[in-house]
Design a binder for these strands. Structure first.
Lengths: 238, 238
DNA sequence: TAGTGGTCTAGACCACTAA
DNA sequence: TAGTGGTCTAGACCACTAC
């Protein structure tokens, strides 16, 4: 592990575990250099990462301070899986039911997500997420089979991402999300407990590997009253 | 202007204006050093910024490449004002109507957004955004008066952000957004052209200055069929 | 004035990619 | 093997903040 990663992880953990409290001042760059026996640039690299990930902010002439970002309910910063979210927010009761798991010939895979007109074999996974006894999320995932050769019901009902990262060694790079509202379909009404709602919140996601290759499209359809998306935006990062 | 900013802006502009095309390879760090007479670290700082802002990606042993991120309709990356968005997406016909502009004593300012129980004087600005003849967005903005002393109808109907940044010299740091769906209120139905929809997409935003001080809360209520939110998420930025 | 973070440099070594 | 980006160092000067 790189030296700057070690320091980054140390401070990140200190913040998440509450050893460093919101508003608290971090040691100065000089002090961190001495304490961890690092050059200033390496210390600065760690701190820069903490800044871009919204853990701290730096003020010229004053120091580095832990951000106070606990005004919202849960800390979803972008890309996170259902299972990770469940763990972070401490959901007591949740489960996943696999509705369909099959291979397709790019039929229903959204055309705009395809790089070209090539024919691909594609895994289609349809799952329903239940939280506290209510079916609230309908997930439709599509993976290229040349990237994800095998997929079982057991993997799907656990965490696909965990499998992809730990077993297949795939490295997720980034994702584009699009959030829209749509009229509920007959399928939505069948698979979700929508009560009297006639709309759903739809999150379309394209997931890319670190090498830039697109490998997954996901459509996540949520009960409107149980949907919440959190985002932290930084204006003009430079 | 810092040297790394100069190079960053140069390349960013080249990408946005199409002189550097998606997938194209940038000059190597060595070449950029020579061409712009910079040290390697300075070149790397520029490129790092382009990476975190999702303009390019770097591949060890190969080079830096322009990202292909044009699969979505418009490039909203986080924090952007209505006027900026209108300019970027080339909306032909839009206007803003100021419904209410007044000073309040923190009454309707959402309590969870307040730092303490202090009493503040707060500007309340309620505006309706019309696009192509349809009233699609209801914006409710709240500003602390000690940060924004004066606000006129003219400023409000133009761009408040432009005024804050250029005239008051305020520096926006970052914002937290929360997106939820809500049942339409009587006010929504009165001020928006909702047709037969009975829900709205609600974006709650807390805006902080670079010094970390919270200074604005905004609630933006959208017609569901005209709402779209785009987000780019990077997994494990380190 | 002392201490802080911001910028910039020159040089070194490593790991990965491609021919 | 040559070229690329990734990490790390030591030292310099600057701008801002606080006292």
């Amino acid at each position: 592990m790189a030296k700057y990663s070690v320091l980054y992880n140390k401070i990140q953990k200190d913040i998440e575990d509450g050893r460093l409290k919101p508003g608290e001042q971090l040691p100065s760059e000089k002090e961190l250099m001495d304490e961890y026996d690092l050059s200033r640039d390496t210390v600065r690299k760690s701190l820069s990462l903490l800044v871009t990930n919204n853990y701290i902010r730096k003020i010229k002439g004053k120091g580095s301070f832990v951000l106070e970002m606990n005004k919202f309910d849960f800390p979803v910063a972008g890309l996170i899986s259902f299972k990770e979210m469940a763990a972070k927010t401490g959901m007591t009761s949740y489960s996943t039911e696999v509705i369909r798991l099959q291979i397709q010939k790019s039929a229903t895979f959204p055309t705009k997500a395809l790089d070209a007109q090539e024919i691909h074999s594609i895994w289609e996974v349809i799952r329903v997420r239940t939280i506290n006894g209510r079916r609230v999320i309908l997930d439709k995932d599509y993976f290229y089979q040349d990237v994800v050769p095998e997929l079982t019901e057991e993997i799907s009902s656990n965490s696909i991402y965990e499998y992809l990262e730990q077993n297949l060694g795939l490295k997720i790079g980034f994702a584009q999300k699009e959030i829209v509202m749509e009229k509920a379909t007959a399928e939505d009404r069948l698979l979700l407990d929508l009560y009297d709602y006639d709309m759903v919140a739809v999150v379309n996601t394209l997931v890319y590997l670190v090498n830039g290759k697109l490998f997954q499209f996901t459509q996540s359809r949520h009960c409107p009253d149980k949907f919440k998306f959190i985002d932290v935006a930084r204006r003009n990062t430079p």
